[in-house]
Design a protein around this nucleic acid. Structure first.
Lengths: 242, 242
DNA sequence: CGTATTGTTGAGCGTAGTCAAAGTTAGTGG
DNA sequence: CCACTAACTTTGACTACGCTCAACAATACG
């Protein structure tokens, strides 16, 4: 396993915001990455643990979540291949939330100190890493708005729009309206602050309205304009063009 | 106005996480700060505007918010004296949310490029600035959980605990259970994803239960343990001890 | 002192939650 | 490859938390 293509999605994503030189890429590729497969639902980080590494999602989907006192779960973000789930670990010594696999995943893990050192040596990498954490924060802000001030149809529409926009940005040569979408209805509910039952009924109305088709881990967006309008989705907060 | 004491709350806060030297402080004090008073409710940043400055809150309270399509408002965070509201501006070119004064405020404004340059020259300042944005992001995550998975009493209890904990950390010589708390019930509602009417009724039950007393901009926490228990409040996410 | 803002109350309603069961799909092991 | 099982989706009946609208009371402020 000497191929380093696993970094390409990361580089493509970073290059939307910074200008990586070949030396930058070589330096990143030179980090002591360890690739590891994870099974579905397995925990990558647990709240309260000391942080030691940063994790890049090479393939599959993962999510961050927190549990509240009665055991309910709130998903805080979804991550796709090419994204880090825990760059904040570089400065924060203890994890404040859980990170879990949504599907089977392959992670590339690197000691956080190695990333920190590289950031000192390579200002462009430093900029890319910080930008990553700032874009994450912007998405968290939008999620506060989504669960705080939108109704069920709007919340789910917004979630689907966001993931579609991110998947599209990650894979511009795709058709832009069909995606692998492995979230169960219970997971959609945990993203949106709803129950699984109500999520089910809401998805049915979105289907009946001709906005989406969603089954067996496949999402088709049938009417992007109306879905985005319904979900009040405006992609500025994704900062895809910095 | 040559006194530079206005930076002291910022330095105290930053020194919870990094070791600022006298030279670091002098360098920060040497930035081209411009102090400006703002009246209650006035906008400091508007969504969609290009970013040019960073704003430090010298006195008063401010908040970040986003508006959804039907005009409803979601408050995303509350800020107290000694905090920056928009350090993410250093890398993000367009504001993705609004920043507004809660009370009359004094801001100290500095061109974002000046901060960026100082970060290059002073690694400790760079660390402090990044840490600030990471702590902000952690608070956003907790707010997603708060509005997504807690009921009205819990949400408000959690909000009050968070602000009390932050005010206490900013002013350790205070008595720790009485605070200036200038949020109207409508603003509390916009923080928690509730309506003003339901916030009113919920506050009444918190008072009746002997947990708090809240009136005329003054909050007293009468039973911290029970309030924190009710709100499922655990301050790890504040990263006060990094 | 007068007016706008904020807080409080009541009645009725609706979105979303709960609980339980049945139907469907996907995954696993024999 | 099939059978069995666990996970996921769907449906129905009922409930309840929080919303809406409207009026009034109490503060704060110019």
């Amino acid at each position: 396993m000497d191929d380093n293509n696993f970094l390409d999605p990361l580089f493509r994503r970073w290059q939307r915001g910074v200008a990586l030189t070949p030396e930058d890429k070589r330096a990143v590729a030179g980090l002591p990455w360890v690739r590891r497969p994870f099974s579905r639902d397995s925990y990558i980080v647990r709240e309260g643990e000391p942080t030691t590494v940063c994790s890049l999602l090479v393939s599959g989907f993962a999510f961050r979540q927190k549990l509240v006192s009665d055991g309910a779960r709130q998903i805080i973000s979804i991550h796709i291949a090419g994204e880090f789930m825990d760059l904040q670990n570089i400065l924060l010594e203890v994890a404040d939330h859980n990170v879990q696999c949504l599907t089977r995943c392959v992670l590339a893990v690197v000691p956080k100190n190695a990333v920190a050192d590289l950031m000192e040596a390579r200002p462009t990498v430093k900029r890319a890493v910080w930008l990553d954490t700032l874009q994450d924060a912007s998405i968290f802000r939008e999620w506060v708005v989504n669960v705080g001030r939108r109704d069920a149809k709007e919340r789910i529409a917004h979630l689907l729009c966001e993931l579609a926009a991110r998947l599209k940005a990650a894979n511009p040569q795709g058709d832009g309206s069909n995606f692998d979408f492995p979230l169960t209805q219970e997971q959609i509910a945990d993203c949106t602050g709803l129950t699984a039952v109500h999520t089910n009924r809401t998805l049915q109305t979105l289907r009946k309205d001709g906005l989406i088709s969603l089954s067996s881990s496949r999402l088709s967006i049938l009417d992007w304009d109306r879905l985005a309008e319904l979900g009040d989705f405006h992609e500025r907060y994704l900062h895809h063009a910095v």
